[in-house]
Simulated scan of single mutants.
Amino acid sequence: MLFNDQGSTRPPVTLAISQPAHALISGEILRAWAEPLDKQLVLAAEQHDIAWLDWEVSPTFDPRTGRPHFFRDIGAAQHAPMWEQGVRRAEAAWGRHVALLVSRHGSTIYQRFSDRHRSTGDGLAEDERAASDYLRRHRSLQDDWARALGLDADAVARDAELLAFADTLSLILCGALPAPPQIEVTGRTIKVELVPGITSTYRLSPWPFVTEQLTFAVEARALPSSGRFADESAARAWLADPARAVARSSLCAA
């Protein structure tokens, strides 16, 4: 789950956005790419967080924040099995090409995890082991699928980089990541700048899309005005409440 502080609203409100909803924005980002992209890549971007479907139905509660866990606060030991199931679901639903790209995106995540955590202190040993196991198992699986599909390593790497770019940009739009000054993708550097005074709106330069502006809207849930719940029971009642909000964001050319 992601949390987006809507600072421009009065009173301010924080929206909770599910991982699969954030992934929909990733798909829209690649669907608008200025160069033609394989439909399987766009679908994989749209569904790359299929691993989180079951968790988002009943998210775990973080007593430190008084909210459902932020997705980055869940360790690899817990979510690596979810990714395994997500890859299997992707293969069953859409075939090996989409499953390959979802699997490869998982590898991108677990490689970044391994790069960040090189020691076994602070209780990270189990998470490190889960990340390493995923990388080892899926490396050969990805090679087998790519070979069977006739995809060369460079093509798969390029698609994985585009998916990672769309994922990162969507996380920024959803308020889950601070915007870096620039993002590297497929040999180009794209500058990112928050538009002052407008929530979740960013300028990109050079502009990589077919239209001069992109707008996004996904269903979300508004947290209470305090930004947290008294306990897990209150959070469960909120999850059962049918009330919804809309999380809006946009990209524009500099």
Rank of each mutant, 00 (worst) to 15 (best):
V102H: 08
A21W: 07
Y134I: 13
S205M: 07
D5S: 15
L37V: 00
V210A: 05
A220E: 00
H48Y: 03
P180A: 07
L171D: 06
P36C: 01
F61H: 03
E46A: 09
T168D: 10
L163I: 04
V156E: 02
R136N: 15
G123R: 01
P11S: 06
A146P: 08
R244S: 12
R10K: 11
A16Y: 02
D73S: 12
V218K: 00
R228H: 08
V195I: 06
A80I: 13
R236T: 14
P20H: 12
V246W: 07
A217R: 05
P181L: 04
A217M: 03
D154Q: 04
W94T: 13
Y134D: 09
G95E: 12
A179W: 15
N4P: 04
L41K: 01
K39P: 03
W83K: 06
R244P: 05
L204G: 05
A253S: 12
G106E: 13
Q78R: 15
D167I: 07
L169P: 05
L30Y: 01
H97T: 11
S233P: 06
E161R: 02
P12T: 10
S225K: 03
A77W: 08
R10G: 07
S140M: 15
S114L: 14
A99C: 05
F71R: 02
S58T: 14
L135C: 12
V102T: 06
H22C: 15
L30K: 00
G75W: 05
S58K: 13
I17V: 11
F3C: 03
V156S: 00
A32F: 00
D38L: 00
L163Y: 02
T9Y: 02
T108K: 06
A157L: 01
W145Y: 12
I198Y: 09
Q78M: 14
P206M: 04
R96H: 12
S58R: 13
A253L: 08
F209M: 04
L162I: 00
I29T: 04
H79V: 12
D62Q: 10
A34H: 01
L194Q: 14
R89V: 15
Q111F: 10
A92I: 13
E232T: 04
D231E: 00
A90R: 13
A77P: 03
A146Y: 07
E126G: 06
A23K: 07
T211G: 09
F71T: 04
R244W: 15
W55V: 14
